[in-house]
Design a protein around this nucleic acid. Structure first.
Lengths: 339, 339
DNA sequence: TGTTAGCACTCTTTACTTTCGAGTGCTAAT
DNA sequence: ATTAGCACTCGAAAGTAAAGAGTGCTAACA
């Protein structure tokens, strides 16, 4: 479809535009070392590339900028493997060098390193709780009427929820309940807890506990009502550094959606395994239509559990970012392999 | 010092500027109902007010805007008690109407309500952990070499930290240690824990535990290494709605410091009891020199524990914001009174 | 003596023009 | 097939002009 020369020119245009954010003219292209043709020749090729929809003009006599189709072609066919600098590699590795056992710590560090290295906004979706299993359940009484329920997972994740104990529930009932649940439910995947509680254990529990109904109801609501989506975001302010976000209204739209954890979680959760790139209008969320989102998945104990993403302008350093995400997601998966 | 007429005019200028963000001219002032003088008279008074430094011109023939000295005078002497609308009051009360026992939930809700009501950025500094006491300490083993330490406070706050258990420490030692700590330390203020561990308990512990040194060391570092500052921020994007933050560079500076939790914690921690207002250059942090920060303290069980703040342009609705903060901080203190 | 009308003056804002240059498309020559 | 040449287009930047909001000052007024 595209001649070698056209491929070369397209590559130069996109590479250049990613760096400068300025439209590229035929003269500038001809001056590149790898180009041995005159501006006129290049103009002809550019006219063809434009006709095919890979590049665009900002106005009738401007240089060219990549179109979304152009970026798509670029990432699909022109992406050269990027050799990460020693510094990049070290910074990523440094996340895993300490004895961090807690998931949150690793993720928090990763988010920061990633946004610092790229100057984009990095987003990590934490492990799906349903991939993890229950390690321990516990009630700590704070006063006669209040208590904290604490749930520890096999990944070291701790969920806790305070609640008031209504007067009709005996504290002893609650304790019994928790004891029974611990005996029966340790090792069960979190996502199944609800079902198991509901269907298999009610009868057994009725046997032991006087007023199982309300005690159960309370414990359930305390623990499972709002399963928080763990979305970690770093480098939000980096967006402001990109020239395409000089306009405050654009930034506002983008920031608003990033404040919505659930929305972000949905966006990231629906990604395929491995590296995936959404460019501009390929993004389902309107406010991201001027951005590209690159996602990578990582796994915990062999199962896919979460997503790492970088959000930046369409004019992203795709090559480098893909390499960084690859490295990081691999290292994460490796670190979490035997948890 | 200032005549009644000057006070009136100053008040009108500031009230008006707070609403419109536009310089106010003599003609506009004279049209106000409460003003019965001609523009010429007002011009004379304005010249005086300017000479005294309460108002400024943006250029030689512009209307006047309040100076920082003007705002200071305004909040010190001209602030009328603001009557909150039913809606405002209800929204604030709604935070406390549910059975929220957990501190985090109350604070998170408050932050959101506050930023929604004001269109400013709201910041809440969580309870100082050292004001709270230990309720329970616990170790949950995840694997042979990893465990989570969980610390529950009397406020229902849960701290947890995962750590690797080095081979030289016996799991049983760790358990013993935790048992002893629980017997001895429940009810001790968190801030004293470190001291108590260090000085009073070492001898006792030595008696029971074989290798107290390293077990102790590990537990300590797991629990007390980085005491997180709990800074809750809501409505960061609201800044973008203010005309004074049309400039992306200003926003960037401001957002950067808000990403630094410790810095924000320091700023808020160093406030006096009750309501306090810092205007423009009164703020110690450079990036806030174009902003006003209004803080209020709330207490838990009678002791001062935290700060609620609103950050906005110098042109804030001081009167309303003060009332809102007063109401919220009182309700918070009241709610937390007997925790 | 305090207040106000009148007026010249200042400065910003907006719109309109001009100029400059980067870049294009096309044609004709190589 | 490639390139030099050239007329043309458009945006960005700079300059000009008019409009309007607001001021300070002076002199008149109650």
């Amino acid at each position: 479809m595209l001649s070698n020369r056209q491929l070369l020119i397209l590559q130069v245009i996109i590479d250049e535009f990613i760096q400068t954010a300025q439209p590229i003219g035929s003269r500038a292209i001809s001056k590149k070392d790898e180009i041995i043709f005159s501006p006129a020749t290049i103009r002809n090729e550019m006219a063809d590339l434009e006709e095919m929809g890979y590049i665009e003009k900002t106005h009738s006599s401007s240089g060219r900028v990549p179109s979304e189709k152009g970026y798509r072609f670029y990432v699909d066919h022109l992406l050269l493997p990027f050799h990460l600098s020693k510094n990049d590699q070290q910074l990523i590795s440094s996340v895993f060098e300490q004895d961090l056992v807690e998931f949150e710590q690793v993720v928090q560090k990763s988010v920061n390193v990633l946004s610092d290295l790229t100057n984009y906004t990095s987003i990590i979706l934490g492990p799906q709780v349903y991939e993890t299993t229950l390690k321990q359940l516990q009630i700590v009484h704070l006063s006669a009427t209040t208590a904290v329920a604490i749930l520890v997972t096999n990944t070291g994740h701790v969920e806790h929820r305070s609640f008031t104990i209504p007067t009709e529930i005996k504290a002893s009932d609650l304790e019994k309940l928790v004891n029974i649940l611990n005996e029966r439910l340790v090792g069960v995947p979190i996502v199944e807890l609800h079902h198991r509680l509901q269907h298999e254990l009610t009868s057994i529990l009725n046997h032991y506990v006087d007023d199982i109904e309300s005690a159960f109801h309370y414990l359930k609501s305390a623990l499972f009502d709002q399963q928080p989506n763990q979305v970690y975001i770093g480098g939000i302010t980096n967006m402001l550094l990109q020239p395409e976000f000089n306009d405050v209204t654009k930034v506002h739209a983008l920031y608003s959606i990033m404040e919505k954890e659930e929305l972000m979680a949905n966006v990231l959760r629906s990604t395929n395994e491995g590296i995936h790139i959404s460019i501009g209008h390929e993004n389902k969320v309107n406010a991201m239509r001027d951005c590209s989102l690159i996602t990578a998945t990582y796994s915990l104990a062999g199962k896919q559990v979460g997503t790492i993403a970088l959000l930046g302008p369409k004019r992203m350093e795709y090559s480098r970012v893909v390499s960084l995400l690859n490295l990081l997601s691999n290292q994460m998966s490796h670190t979490f392999h035997d948890w």
